[in-house]
Nucleic acid binder design. Structure first.
Lengths: 189, 189, 189, 189
DNA sequence: TATGAATGAGAATTCATTCAT
DNA sequence: AATGAATGAATTCTCATTCAT
């Protein structure tokens, strides 16, 4: 990627996470990025485009990493374990981005809405695929793979964010163990 | 509650859900509520206060309903089942409010931050309590009740919102069954 | 007319005449008018609306005055004399407005274009009517009343503006005599 | 003239006529001209200089053509006829330029103001000269040659522009006949 | 000599908030 | 108590101009 575009992305993530997209001004982003205000508009149509490009970019990176990491893993159970781990690591590393994402994803009508939905769908579908596979192989017993996939994402997403917001850091190991255990074996003794 | 305050709350929820808090103007809220713009400032200090009051109010209602509904239920397992059901019904009924909540909760510095954190904590703590109870009673096996509680909230929250956003309505029955099953018994066959 | 709207109109004419519509900022107008910047937007949709409203308003006033003044005059010749006199007086009195008009009328596409064309047409048509009348009464000999009408307007318009720009004031008496003489009797000896 | 300078002139006239000088960006001109944006600044000090150079250039061409065409013509009457014809042809051929001129000429303070006034004066003076000549030769009867000259220019200028704007084309023949007739013989029967 | 990426002053416009009625 | 006209700080975005390549 163009290095200046990347500089802008990094500055935007930081600011958006701290103050929200609407609470952040283009001027602040340009200052954080160390470029002129006008330069933002050379790389992005407008603020909306910057926000949605950033969201797409992040989702794509996350989906990419997950796809790459589960490659070669055989059982659906092991794949799920890896997915949880990779996601938590991603959240820990890019917690600014993840806060931004959680906040802005459930967004309101904007010109890029469809585009975003598609990207997010990609990400959900990967996890859904693993669950379907597990069902076929008789490893898993879920009736509705979509509910199961979104549930898993929800568990990881909210616990990670909860830790980040209330304790200051994502406790990857602790969360991973517990989440995997609950998701795979349930709470019942 | 003061009926005019309630009118304003209802108008605000509707608009905030449609267009976000920053995308909604005080004028729009006043028109939706059928009162003068100045009147809003009689009932709320400023916009920030309106947003955070609304958030507290909603969390309190949800916590209240949950507390009331699990009263008298004996086993932790049944309590969890009820919690999931009540939450999904609440999401279905007040999906505007829930979208607003998810978006605005992971909020950014504002004068009411501490207040909000406390309220949200109340809500988490109720569920954490049920889980702790279940552990004590040897019904549950979780190592970390907090992770477990937030995981459950995350599952319900995200599946409900996912259905609302991508399918237009929250499929309470389907989600409830699957989520309860996963949370209690896990995915493994 | 609303007194605040009028204050804004007067301020806008003055500034537009001095610096052109695009050379004048909304801030300057608001300062000249002694109102807040936001107030301009209570009375006009946007800058374009302010410009075109002003143009319509001026054309309407001019057309109105002309219509009123020629009422009761019998011969077309006398009517033409009155038209030239009234126009020159108007130009002298509102030379700011006239400079603005001449400059901005031959404008470029904008949302109010059709509206403006209609208003200007009204004004041209009045003069065309007098000429047609004169032809019917055998007073005048023009073959094309439209060319004749626009010619007269052009003579008055440009001489008045020329005097204003190059000599600082519109010499009403001198211009009136000569223009009427040329238009009615021609240059030939 | 330098061919690149001419390319820029042509591009600028086209754009200025379509969208006004302030509505046209330097980038648009450079693209229309097929040169880099920076190149414009090699041939013109700044935008103001481009506008005023263009205006001077056009006035000079028009004055030049008129001077050349009336050379050798004897009577003032015939010279006036030729002047009207030449002007109308020029307007028809360069209507973009003429619209630009009418709009921008009644210009506002800028660093090249004096220069422009002089050029325009040149043009007026040629026609004034013809009229003075006619008076001396007893062909014409005007009392004030300046009013007469500006009147003629006004007639031609506004009728041509009126036709261009409201009918899409300058009807040279029709306008010429009528304007010459009015100017020389007047309207009276 | 020619280019176009980068800049930042400045423009139009919005909107939370105030306050006279 | 209720209203909505008025305000101006703040925001997004544009574009003339510069300058390194």
């Amino acid at each position: 990627m163009n290095p200046k575009r990347e500089k802008i992305f990094n500055a935007a993530v930081k600011k958006f996470s701290e103050k929200g997209t609407t609470g952040t001004t283009m001027k602040e982003i340009s200052q954080e990025a160390g470029v002129g205000k006008g330069t933002l508009y050379r790389y992005f149509e407008d603020k909306e485009d910057l926000v949605s490009s950033l969201m797409s970019y992040g989702f794509e990176r996350l989906t990419e990493v997950i796809k790459r990491e589960i490659e070669g893993i055989e059982s659906a159970t092991d794949k799920i374990k890896k997915v949880v781990e990779v996601q938590l690591e991603f959240y820990k590393k890019h917690c600014d981005f993840c806060r931004f994402l959680t906040r802005e994803f459930w967004g309101y009508k904007n010109k890029f809405e469809e585009n975003i939905k598609e990207i997010r769908s990609d990400y959900t579908v990967v996890i859904e695929g693993i669950i379907e596979e597990g069902i076929e192989e008789n490893e898993f017993k879920a009736k509705d793979p979509e509910v199961a996939a979104v549930s898993l994402i929800g568990m990881v997403n909210l616990t990670a964010l909860h830790w980040f917001m209330f304790k200051g850091e994502v406790a990857v190991d602790k969360i991973r163990e517990e989440v995997i255990d609950i998701f795979l074996s349930g709470m019942l003794n």
